[in-house]
């Protein structure tokens, strides 16, 4: 409560300003501390992957960024501006609805269980946000949605409802739906965890394509270590609500320095 807000800058400026910054962010549910004084920067265009055991707070990081969870302490910045707070008379105060809504436009998210709207077709799922939120005409929203469904190879199923699509197909539509909002930051929360092994590649393939062709900032929580190693610029290993170790994938996977990282990686390897 008695947090000194003057320690937090009102804006992040300069050439090296990160796209996302967590500054002294803490989150707890009663006694349980989920995140403890987290400091984390993600550079524009970076693909940053978070790995770690369950309960380490990795999914919470993404959910806080999407404003699905509030934070108890600290400030999160996105694209130079505070996300969780806003400026009032030269100090940062907790963000109001309007500020959150404006800032949320910069962020897109894909979920473990896809969360497509079941009463809409694939195409309608991708048009909903652009029409309702961005105010696009139906025609231009449809055109953009069709392009994105083409990119995720779902054009032929565009008039199907989610109930008629496989998990992998639903997740690809969900990626297209998020991209249709033109976010600057994309969040992938265990997007392959609910999929059958044989369709995981459909989804990872789409994400690979995004990394290769788009200058998006991406944050991903995953259990696919091979995939994380392949496409990440940086990997963070979370343990007990903190970043235990981070670095380039070759270093973190090839020669982890911390004991806990080694234990986790060898446990994961054995499971596969």
């Amino acid at each position: 409560m008695s947090e000194d807000m003057t320690q937090f800058p009102l804006r992040l400026e300069g050439e090296n300003a990160p796209m996302v910054r967590f500054m002294n962010v803490s989150k707890s549910y009663g006694e349980l501390t989920v995140l403890d004084q987290l400091n984390l920067d993600v550079a524009p265009g970076e693909m940053m992957t978070i790995i770690g055991p369950s309960g380490s707070g990795k999914t919470t990081v993404l959910r806080m960024l999407m404003t699905l969870e509030t934070i108890n302490k600290g400030v999160i910045y996105v694209d130079g501006e505070p996300l969780t707070h806003m400026e009032k008379n030269g100090v940062l105060v907790p963000a109001n609805k309007m500020h959150l809504r404006r800032m949320r436009a910069k962020i897109g998210m894909c979920f473990q269980h896809f969360n497509l709207f079941p009463h809409m077709t694939a195409l309608q799922n991708c048009m909903e946000g652009p029409v309702q939120v961005l105010g696009l005409t139906k025609e231009s929203a449809r055109q953009r949605a069709e392009e994105l469904l083409e990119m995720v190879a779902m054009s032929d199923k565009r008039d199907h409802h989610p109930s008629r699509l496989s998990g992998g197909q639903q997740q690809r539509v969900a990626i297209a739906r998020a991209l249709a909002m033109r976010p600057k930051v994309m969040l992938f929360d265990e997007v392959t965890s609910a999929l059958d092994p044989e369709v995981i590649n459909e989804v990872t393939g789409v994400i690979r394509k995004l990394v290769g062709e788009h200058h998006l900032t991406m944050m991903m929580v995953t259990h696919q270590m091979g995939f994380a190693r392949d496409i990440s610029d940086r990997v963070c290993f979370f343990y007990g609500g903190k970043i235990e170790e981070q670095g380039a994938p070759a270093d973190l996977f090839g020669s982890p320095k911390k004991q806990r990282t080694k234990q986790f990686l060898s446990a994961v390897k054995e499971a596969v």
Partner: peptide, 25 residues
């Protein structure tokens, strides 16, 4: 709950979320 979260993620307002996403379901 995931439907509410997906609606938030595409930045629908609470009113839009009710009318377009939640009430039809």
């Amino acid at each position: 709950k995931g439907q509410w979260e997906a609606a938030t993620a595409i930045n629908l307002t609470t009113t839009q979320t009710y009318w377009r996403i939640i009430l039809p379901q």
